[in-house]
Amino acid sequence: MIEFVFAPDDVARVRFAFSPMWEMVRSLRVLADPSGHALHLPWVHAVRPRLRGLGMGPLRDVVPPGGYIPDFLTPPPATPLPDLAAELEIVRATPPEVVAAELRFTERGSRPTPARQALAADPERTLETLADLLGRYWTAAVEPFWPRIRDLLEGDVLRRAGALTAAGAAGVFGDLHEAVSWRSGSLCVDRRWTFRGGLAGRGLLLVPSVFVWPEVSVMVPPYQAMLSYPPNGVATLWETERPARGREDPLAALIGRRRAELLAALATPASTTELARRMDVTPGAVSQHLGVLRACGLVTGHRLGRRVLYVRTPAGDALAQS
């Protein structure tokens, strides 16, 4: 059991971020064990042909189907919206002795594989190889799907940040994951290993990740305390068909079929581009319908950098669920 003990002001130090590097490394585990991550099978089938000739061996050696992933591959995000290039530079800056030690580390007293031992014997060269290979893997396997992944992650951050403001720790942790519970000032995570301690004055970083599904992942001090969890709506990630509503649907009769479909699609926040992809219409058409829904107080937009993410308002939730 992992138990993070919160001091009185630690809730104020809870922050959110997501990480292209984290998604990329966790996706390697999905490729290694597709049956354990069946939700992502459409992605697995799409990317496997793209990986031919990429030389994935070293990445498969360091990211096994289960167990420990070297921590230097998943540095805690330093900003809410990190850049992959910046994260790769953090990985490249890992001291060689840390690379070697983490490649040799195993859980429950087992021995590292011969391949891991060989990589650990030349940590500087291994680090360069892994960083270069991660960059190529990103281009082939993750970047083409990043816009829809990013929308889902940003939407979850918006939702949970609002819950934290409105209801405190209980609001944000209450439905985070079945393995996570909030108990009288402590956040408990059901794991096979044990840790109990405070947050060392650095707060807790919450990192939504689509590829961590169906599990959660934890990092404990002396690293930045971090909990990675599947975002709300992850089951819709690879859907290609637009939401279906019956011809006699009262909501469609009230506001029009397209606007009813948009309101249903915004069960999870999304950008105009993502909504257009899901519904197989032009972004311009989506923008027009969103303008009407926004004027009626049913949706609202949140600007994140150059992008706007749309979410349903409480009135929109009530209408969509009626």
Rank of each mutant, 00 (worst) to 15 (best):
Met1His: 08
Glu3Met: 10
Phe6His: 06
Ala7Ile: 05
Asp9Asn: 14
Arg13Leu: 04
Phe18Thr: 07
Phe18Trp: 12
Ser19Lys: 06
Met21Pro: 13
Met21Trp: 02
Val25His: 03
Val30Leu: 11
Leu31Ser: 00
Ala32Ser: 08
Asp33Phe: 02
Pro34Asn: 06
Ala38Tyr: 06
Leu41Trp: 00
Pro42His: 01
Val44Lys: 01
Val47Pro: 06
Leu51Cys: 10
Leu51Trp: 02
Arg52His: 00
Arg52Tyr: 01
Gly55Leu: 02
Met56Cys: 11
Gly57Tyr: 02
Pro58Arg: 02
Leu59Glu: 02
Arg60Ile: 05
Asp61Arg: 07
Pro64Phe: 04
Gly66Cys: 12
Tyr68Asp: 08
Ile69Ala: 13
Pro70Ser: 00
Thr74Ala: 04
Ala78Lys: 04
Ala85Pro: 10
Ala85His: 14
Ala86Asp: 12
Glu89Phe: 08
Val91Asp: 00
Val91Cys: 03
Thr94Asn: 05
Ala100Gly: 07
Ala101Asn: 04
Phe105Asn: 07
Thr106Val: 08
Thr106Leu: 04
Glu107Phe: 00
Ser110His: 10
Arg111Asn: 11
Pro112Leu: 05
Pro114Cys: 09
Ala115His: 04
Arg116Met: 01
Gln117Arg: 13
Leu119Met: 12
Ala121Ile: 10
Arg125His: 11
Thr129Trp: 09
Leu130Phe: 13
Leu133Lys: 13
Leu134Tyr: 02
Arg136Tyr: 01
Arg136Met: 11
Trp138Lys: 10
Trp138His: 09
Ala141Trp: 02
Ala141Asp: 11
Pro144Glu: 12
Pro144Thr: 14
Arg150Ala: 14
Leu153Trp: 14
Gly155Asn: 03
Arg159Ile: 15
Arg159Phe: 03
Gly162Cys: 03
Leu164Glu: 04
Thr165Lys: 08
Ala166Asp: 03
Ala167Phe: 06
Phe173Asp: 07
Leu176Met: 10
Leu176Tyr: 09
Ser181Ile: 03
Trp182Ile: 06
Ser184Val: 12
Gly185Ile: 03
Ser186Tyr: 09
Cys188Gln: 15
Val189Asn: 06
Asp190Thr: 08
Arg192Gln: 09
Trp193Phe: 11
Arg196Met: 00
Gly197Gln: 02
Gly198Ala: 02
Gly201Ser: 10
Leu204Ala: 00
Leu205Ile: 00
Leu206Ala: 05
Leu206Glu: 06
Val212Lys: 01
Val212Ala: 08
Pro214Thr: 09
Glu215Ala: 06
Val218Gln: 03
Pro221Asn: 10
Tyr223His: 07
Ala235Tyr: 13
Leu237Lys: 05
Thr240Ile: 15
Thr240Ala: 15
Arg245Trp: 05
Asp249His: 13
Arg259Ala: 03
Arg259Leu: 10
Ala260Lys: 04
Glu261Asp: 08
Leu263Asn: 06
Ala265Arg: 02
Ala270Val: 15
Ala270Leu: 12
Ala270Pro: 12
Thr272Phe: 09
Thr273Val: 15
Glu274Asp: 09
Arg278His: 09
Met279Arg: 09
Asp280Trp: 13
Thr282Cys: 05
Thr282Asn: 11
Gly284Ile: 08
Ala285Met: 11
Ser287Val: 08
Gln288Phe: 10
Gly291Ser: 05
Arg294Ser: 12
Cys296Ala: 13
Arg303His: 15
Leu304Met: 10
Gly305Ile: 14
Arg306Val: 12
Leu309Val: 15
Val311Trp: 11
Ala315Asp: 15
Gly316Met: 09
Ala318Gly: 07
Leu319Phe: 11
Gln321Lys: 14
